[in-house]
Design a binder for these strands. Structure first.
Lengths: 219, 219
DNA sequence: CTTTTGCTAGTGCGACTGTACTACCAAAAA
DNA sequence: TTTTTGGTAGTACAGTCGCACTAGCAAAAG
């Protein structure tokens, strides 16, 4: 029985080949044969590692998510809440070439999840992780006295979540823009503005925390 | 020579059939044959109306954009700047079923534009229109004295732009969520917070308005 | 009338898709 | 040694794809 340890390693390599194909030619081009050729193996072998085409895409998407989670989890804690939140948020943005490629894969599989049930559950899980990360950031600002006392934390978390996803999309699609500094400035501006909120919108008579979510840790 | 007036009308019908297919089965399913069947015509006829598959998708995307532009353009002006900006911004969000379907098509073709050059140019044009709309909104707030005097308008426009796109994506992908009221609240919170900005981030020594843009009107 | 013209339907072609399946190989187990 | 087993390669199949092409139809032009 040959090397049985590399099984996961080989799957990882196939997933990275999938990334390259998606970034280069789009998710539609990421067929079993194409990815196999990119990775230098036969289609039959790929099918042995991933039972179905969906499995391959799900694994490729999950690997993107895992890496992002690992990156954030390995960040050193900072005494200053604002600096720490800025650092975490910036880490979630595609500010360099590597993360931009990952985000490209992420967004491509995101929309592809509309048709694929397996992909959709992975996508939804990632969305919840991202939401919880935003809640954590708002909470961190609050405990660091860098959040307006009267702020609706859940609302601010959702606002930050939307801002981050929007920035990520714009950074990814503004292709040639080699200078993502403007995104950092938008981020600093937003986080800074949370400290001294304007007048609360004296909210409409709605429930305090509307959107449906379920618990999860970090990212 | 039979009805030559309906030519555009028929193209419009085909584009709407394309929307239905994309919303139901994803952009990958929007082939020439499938769309033709959805519209009740033969594939040969479709090909006569749209020379190529890309032409069909570009036209379908352009129609989404045109409708959004028309919706905003037909809005009555309001004396109060905050209310007007809130109304325009809310109009750009997929808050009802119809606009959610349009946004779904928009986002699907958005990522498909990564592979299709014709689609990409249409996408980039839409992005610039959306950016300019955000600049207009920030300017409208300023002239209505509803924007902090020291605010960096270009920065705020980019921030609003990211927020709107993020909200649109979240509204679209949070499928079952029948109550989009939370998005309205986030929007009101954001626009309200622009009036009394916190301390400006005492910006890094970068250029004042970094991202590359070119002029265009409304939406 | 006949001719022309705009449009439709249908078919065919080469390429590619996901998946199933079989043959083969080499290392571990007996 | 032989047997078993995890992994690889290659092929086959039914289906779909975009696109090209031809034949036919119905209304306008002559």
């Amino acid at each position: 029985m040959p090397k049985l340890i590399d099984h996961d390693e080989r799957r990882r390599q196939l997933a990275e080949a999938t990334w390259r194909v998606i970034v280069r030619d789009g998710v539609a081009a990421a067929s079993v044969r194409t990815v196999a050729a990119e990775a230098g193996v036969s289609a039959g072998s790929l099918r042995h590692l991933f039972g179905t085409h969906s499995d391959l895409l799900v694994f490729a998407l999950q690997l993107v998510i895992d890496r992002a989670v690992a990156r954030v989890a390995s960040m050193p804690p900072q005494p200053d809440a604002v600096r720490e939140v800025e650092a975490v948020a910036a880490e979630l943005l595609p500010l360099d070439r590597e993360r931009r490629a990952e985000t490209e894969v992420y967004l491509a599989l995101f929309t592809a999840a509309g048709t694929d049930d397996d992909l959709r559950s992975t996508r939804d899980m990632a969305r919840r992780q991202m939401q919880d990360a935003c809640r954590w950031m708002v909470g961190r600002l609050a405990e660091g006295a860098a959040l307006d006392a009267g702020a609706d934390r859940e609302l601010e978390a959702l606002r930050l979540y939307a801002l981050l996803d929007g920035l990520a999309a714009h950074l990814t699609y503004d292709a040639a823009d080699a200078d993502p500094e403007w995104a950092r400035r938008v981020l600093r501006r937003h986080i800074g503005s949370l400290a001294t909120s304007g007048p609360q919108p004296s909210a409409a008579p709605g429930p305090p925390t509307p959107p449906p979510t379920t618990g999860d840790r970090d990212r």
